[in-house]
Design a protein around this nucleic acid. Structure first.
Length: 683
RNA sequence: ACGGGCGUAGUUUAAUCUGGUAAGAAUUAUGGUCUCAUAAGUCAUGGAUUGUGGUUCAAAUCCACACGCCCGUACCA
């Protein structure tokens, strides 16, 4: 444990893209894990700087801004502010949460690449690229579609054919078209600046081999891709929204986001030193000391980037620097697997998952922080399950909250709130006390090995042992015979409560603070320190405060319903897109009379309807079988969209669409208020 | 397609690197018990190694194949 004492740490989490609010998966993998780790290191008395920021450049932001008719910069800053505020609400203890579009970062990146160029790691190359004149855009590979030269599949993308799986170059496609506007792009020659990774290969291999801390599974994959040969990578782009490249002749080029955002790990500390604490020297203090440990909390999709690309850049930069000017190479990368939502991938477009703003509307913060770390996907992908969430809240409440509450209320009621004295220890006492004195090391070791999940589970186990101890000693019996004997037990339990306050500090800081408040301890947690856990943390005679329950059980069904409503509201919001009257006029909506209804075989929800439109009869297929039976529909007058493209459903061609309302619980067909002739137009 | 990883009670998981205890826990279920505490606590019982072959005295663990899921190659940040 002394090993980490007074060591300098730079703790970082992956940079969230400014275009989207992070979801729980993003949160647990990088931001929250890094926060727990940073809080622990501070508690152990280390020098810690914890940084990250919003990744603000790149095509998607530019495109979104254009759609909303604002500048990319305004949009980026607006979203950055929202994300930054959410992290604050999540109690993320960043020393600096910045944005890549800040002057310190921009200058740092520009100078950095000029340095690398000077050191001989950048070369220029002309390439042919497809350009869409209509969108005024060089098209990234996957934004080009066309016919696959191998299998003739019509919708092959410029990077790969989804049909035959073969890798493609955009120029190989027959009849290429722009995926955004469908027009035919032209081939243009453009020059780009490349990073010479092959030149770094040997040194990167050495770095990976010599670093014994990075996870075993990542190592294998990394060595593999190095052995395969690292590709040269273009670091510039023909894009306006980004950091202008300063290479000679690169006037209209920007640095590709991937190669610039990672440098934020460095520049964010620089910005912090210069602008937040006004001690510029602190930048060198952290980044240019070879004993500083830098740690990166990321998702598994980011491993290569953080252990090959990023250190590669640092090595190239350090090439001509003296020892005291070199930037320190990564100490470790803690990568998590993915969090799923009820066994599905999080997906914004399909509305699958929980986003960090929604979470806060559904349950108190510490319930989320606890739950996420408790199920942190360390070994394999794990799912967020409502049932698990419920279990974990119960654990929090029944095991931890209750142990603390029963201990403190007993002391209040029977001992006027004063911590009673210990008397003689028997074996049961000794056993529990030895647990109190070792729990700090057990949990601390797990954290230092980046096993956050184990650390939290060990803490819960400790609280459970507190309950067992209480049960074994049954002080509510002892008190009838000999008050001191009961007091003795509660002295020991109070030490355990104190231990829990400290142990929970990194995980659920609000709760930790509450416990300290009840214990009537005014000192800041960081001043108390991790090592203050022990059998005599609280002195006999110390007065505590009457506690309130720390947690309460939640009605998970109610929360789920709230979640569904939240999702429905969002969906409604995004669907409200204004259309012109001309657009509306294109729809031919009419009243129709249902003449016949049959159930469609092998389809649980489909009905085949024969309808009369006055001038003609038609067949349409509707997904109503769950809500209506055949008989109750015949003879009803309904509303039908008649000029929808015919579509084959289960072998039956549907010539139109029946209109119905759906609130996710019931589905109701629409019926004209008065008796009106079939074929009447709806306007 | 290629490279890497993963697969253990209904559910969430430990033990896998380094083969060796009745595969350990939590939750769920069932039954008992205590009353300080929040219908909480505590105790007991039941329940699992994806499949098929192989190596071995011995396989959850090592090897091969199959199946399923994830990631990377693949510039989407």
């Amino acid at each position: 444990m002394t090993e980490t004492n007074r060591i300098k740490w730079v703790v970082t989490s992956a940079w969230p893209y400014v275009n989207a609010i992070p979801h729980l998966g993003n949160m647990v993998g990088s931001v929250l894990s890094a926060d727990v780790f940073a809080r622990y290191l501070r508690l152990k008395g280390n020098e810690v700087i914890f940084v990250s920021g919003s990744d603000s450049h790149g095509t998607p932001v530019a495109v979104a801004a254009k759609k909303q008719n604002v500048s990319a910069k305004d949009l980026a800053f607006k979203n950055h502010k929202i994300i930054k505020n959410l992290f604050k609400l999540w109690n993320i203890s960043y020393d600096n949460y910045t944005i890549t579009h800040n002057p310190t970062h921009i200058k740092f990146v520009q100078d950095f690449y000029l340095d690398i160029q000077k050191n001989g790691y950048i070369f220029e190359k002309e390439i042919e690229s497809l350009f869409c004149e209509k969108d005024n855009l060089y098209l990234p590979d996957r934004f080009v579609e066309g016919i696959c030269p191998h299998c003739g599949y019509e919708n092959a993308r410029g990077d790969q054919c989804d049909n035959c799986q073969k890798l493609l170059l955009p120029s190989e496609l027959k009849n290429p078209r722009c995926a955004i506007c469908d027009s035919t792009p032209e081939i243009r020659t453009t020059k780009h600046w490349y990073m010479d990774f092959p030149k770094l290969q040997a040194r990167l291999e050495k770095l990976i081999n010599e670093n014994k801390i990075i996870p075993q599974n990542a190592r294998q994959m990394l060595l593999n891709s190095i052995a395969e040969g690292l590709p040269e990578r273009a670091i510039t782009r023909d894009l306006e929204w980004g950091i202008p490249a300063k290479f000679k002749g690169a006037e209209n080029k920007t640095i590709y986001v991937w190669f610039e955002a990672v440098l934020g790990y460095v520049s964010a500390v620089k910005e912090w030193a210069e602008k937040i604490i006004n001690q510029p020297i602190k930048f060198d203090h952290f980044w240019k000391d070879k004993n500083t440990k830098t740690v990166y909390f990321i998702g598994k999709d980011n491993i290569i980037f953080h252990l090959i690309v990023f250190p590669g850049l640092l090595i190239a930069f350090n090439d001509d620097k003296s020892e005291s000017e070199k930037l320190v190479l990564p100490y470790n990368v803690s990568s998590t697997e993915f969090l799923m939502y009820e066994n599905e991938k999080f997906s914004k477009s399909r509305g699958v998952g929980i986003w960090i703003d929604e979470a806060l509307e559904l349950a108190p913060l510490d319930y989320w922080r606890f739950n996420l770390i408790y199920n942190r996907p360390e070994k394999s992908d794990t799912s967020f399950l409502w049932s698990e969430f419920n279990n974990n809240i119960k654990t929090l409440n029944d095991v931890i909250g209750n142990f603390i509450h029963r201990t403190l209320t007993f002391i209040i009621k029977q001992f006027e709130g004063k911590i009673p004295k210990k008397i003689e220890l028997d074996n049961t006492d000794k056993e529990f006390i030895s647990k109190i004195s070792s729990i700090g090391d057990i949990v601390g070791n797990a954290l230092e090995n980046f096993e956050l999940r184990k650390a939290l589970r060990d803490t819960v186990k400790f609280a459970r042992e507190g309950n067992v101890y209480l049960n074994d000693k049954a002080p509510w019996h002892l008190i009838k015979e000999k008050k001191e004997a009961a007091g003795h037990v509660f002295n020991i339990c109070a030490q355990a409560v104190y231990a829990l306050a400290v142990l929970f500090g990194p995980f659920i800081p609000d709760t930790s603070k509450k416990i300290l408040d009840y214990l009537n301890i005014q000192k800041e947690l960081n001043d108390l320190g991790w090592n203050s856990i022990g059998e005599n943390s609280l002195l006999a005679g110390h007065t505590i405060i009457k506690p309130k329950p720390l947690f309460q059980k939640l009605d998970i069904k109610e929360i789920q319903e709230k979640y569904i409503k939240l999702k429905a509201k969002e969906k409604g919001k995004s669907d409200v897109e204004m259309i012109s009257y001309d657009d509306f006029k294109k729809l031919d909506i009419r009243v129709a009379l249902i003449e016949n209804v049959e159930k469609v075989e092998k389809a649980e929800n489909l009905l085949k309807l024969t309808i009369d439109l006055g001038t003609e009869k038609r067949t349409i297929v509707a997904g109503l079988a769950k809500y209506y039976n055949e008989n109750e529909l015949v003879g009803k007058k309904i509303i039908v969209l008649t000029n929808l493209e015919p579509k084959k459903l289960r072998g039956i061609t549907s010539h139109g669409m029946l209109l119905a309302a759906d609130d996710e619980k019931t589905v109701s067909i629409l019926i004209p208020d008065k008796d009106i002739a079939p074929g009447s137009k709806v306007l």
